[in-house]
Design a protein around this nucleic acid. Structure first.
Length: 477
DNA sequence: CTATGGCACGGATT
DNA sequence: AATCCGTGCCATAG
């Protein structure tokens, strides 16, 4: 692994040991959430490692103001001068960050091709409709028309009551029904409520670890800050168990019901719930204004800055014999961890630079603009091994400016844009085109795929074959 | 007879 | 070495 000359930054790069490389690799695999957990583990068992309550830039180590990125390291650079701001962002507020939520979806440029998808209210309505009493319908309608883009209810229950002349208890009933629909927890009034709704639903089919409910219900604040020891105390249990709880939550629950992956294919009979982890990368427009440069925020979890405890380091000298050896090892391990985290940040940033440079229009304009890209290409351009990129991409998610959360691997999807165009062709067809005709149409647009492949794409998008579309879309009996 | 889906093969990707 | 993806061939449903 070699350093690229473009990195004019200040990391002190000492020669790498094999242990260093190995650990960097494992850290790369981890999502932000997992990384936080390993750091916590390390902190608790390694006395040489210390967390100081001070914001510092993870790249260069400068002190930072309470908010915002490092002014030096976030300078737009190299590939894309003046266009993209990219920085590593230390955060601790895991379940609560959401960028600034003021902007609504309408503000964003539409993908001219990606036009046909159900909007959230319709999609949910289709699911609840069979379960609703007649007099519950208008309540449901009102709830569903007052959701924001994350799927939260933006209106007070009593307002609904006043408007529809009904009882709060009635509204609650409908609300409960809606919350059981596909973006599980949709129509909740807070992250907390959304999570609880999801727990309720899951508990019917699978087991829920103990304390999960209580942790969310009563100690949500502590939970979202990952303050395990305090949490354990309050719940009257061990830190171990609390970690299990936290892990369960991040694996199985989604704090923002409608934000995950909305608008891609969704298969009603596919039982895997629409759950994604917290994003590891946030992409936004500067000041949330479309048209502004992109701001890439790479999340690195921390409540402060990690460093080697100077007192401990000092104390080593006074120790003798075995004890000293042991302590030295601790220091070594601690500094290794810190270096590896830096390395991880560095790799992630380089990767994102490349990714944004090539996939910018995808990020801004949507699926159809995805450029074909392989991990191998990126690896070569960055001069790192393929597996490094694979690891960096695996299991991570990215939140786009339109606030959808997508798996990072989507940047490498070979057929996404072809499928998006296919969707569009079918949306605009005048009669039900068969697969061969679609294939020709795609050929005209410069996409050559086999007829058989068209069928596959169609299936992936959940689009019916021609003869069935004829009945459904064009009522030609 | 035509349109589509299943299975399996081979090359690319991870 | 394992997996994914596009494709061709063939069976079958309409």
């Amino acid at each position: 692994m070699k350093l690229t000359p473009t990195q004019g930054h200040y990391q002190t790069q000492s020669p790498m040991t094999s242990a260093h490389i190995a650990q960097t690799m494992t850290l790369l695999y981890m999502t932000a959430t997992e990384l936080l957990q390993t750091i916590d583990v390390e902190l608790s068992k390694n006395p040489a490692l210390e967390l100081i309550n001070e914001r510092r830039c993870p790249m260069c180590g400068r002190k930072l103001p309470p908010q915002g990125p490092c002014s030096i390291c976030s300078q737009p650079k190299t590939l894309d001068p003046g266009e993209t701001i990219i920085f590593i962002s230390p955060r601790d507020d895991f379940f609560t960050y959401q960028g600034s939520s003021s902007s609504s979806l309408e503000d964003y440029p539409e993908d001219p091709f990606a036009s046909i998808q159900l909007d959230l209210p319709t999609y949910v309505l289709q699911q609840v409709a069979p379960d609703l009493e007649v007099n519950e319908r208008e309540i449901a309608a009102m709830i569903l028309t007052n959701l924001n883009e994350d799927g939260f209810l933006t209106i007070e229950i009593r307002e609904i009551c006043r408007f529809l002349h009904t009882l709060p208890s009635k509204v609650e009933v409908v609300l409960k029904k809606i919350q059981r629909c596909d973006p599980l927890g949709v129509s909740a009034r807070s992250v907390k409520e959304a999570l609880l709704a999801q727990v309720e639903f899951l508990s019917e089919t699978t087991g829920i670890p103990e304390f999960v409910r209580r942790a969310i219900k009563d100690e949500f604040e502590l939970l979202s800050r990952h303050q395990y020891s305090e949490l354990a105390k309050r719940l009257g249990t061990t830190v171990q168990k609390v970690k299990l709880v936290s892990h369960f939550i991040s694996e199985n629950l989604n704090p923002f019901p409608a934000r995950a992956n909305w608008g891609t294919i969704r298969n009603p009979n596919d039982s895997t719930p629409n759950v994604f982890h917290q994003p590891d990368i946030l992409i936004n427009y500067l000041n949330n204004k479309p048209g502004n440069p992109l701001v890439i925020e790479i999340i690195t979890p921390s409540r402060g800055t990690l460093r080697i405890n100077p007192l401990f380091k000092h104390a080593v000298k006074d120790q003798i014999g075995e004890k000293q050896e042991e302590w030295k090892k601790d220091i070594e391990k601690a500094s290794l961890l810190i270096k590896c985290i830096q390395q991880r940040n560095n790799t992630m940033r380089q990767l994102m630079e490349k990714l944004v440079a090539t996939q910018k229009s995808f990020i801004i304009h949507g699926d159809t603009y995805l450029e074909p890209l392989t991990r191998a290409q990126v690896a070569e351009e960055l001069g790192v091994h393929e597996s490094t990129i694979s690891r960096a991409v695996a299991n991570k998610t990215v939140q786009l400016p339109n606030r959808k959360i997508i798996p990072m691997a989507m940047f490498f999807d070979r057929s996404l844009s072809a499928r998006a165009i296919l969707r569009n062709i079918i949306a605009n067809e005048n009669y039900a085109l068969n697969d061969t005709e679609i294939q020709e149409e795609l050929e005209n647009l410069g996409i050559s795929v086999a007829r058989r492949t068209v069928a596959k794409y169609r299936a992936m998008e959940g689009i019916l074959p021609a003869h069935l579309r004829r009945i459904e879309k064009f009522a030609t009996t």
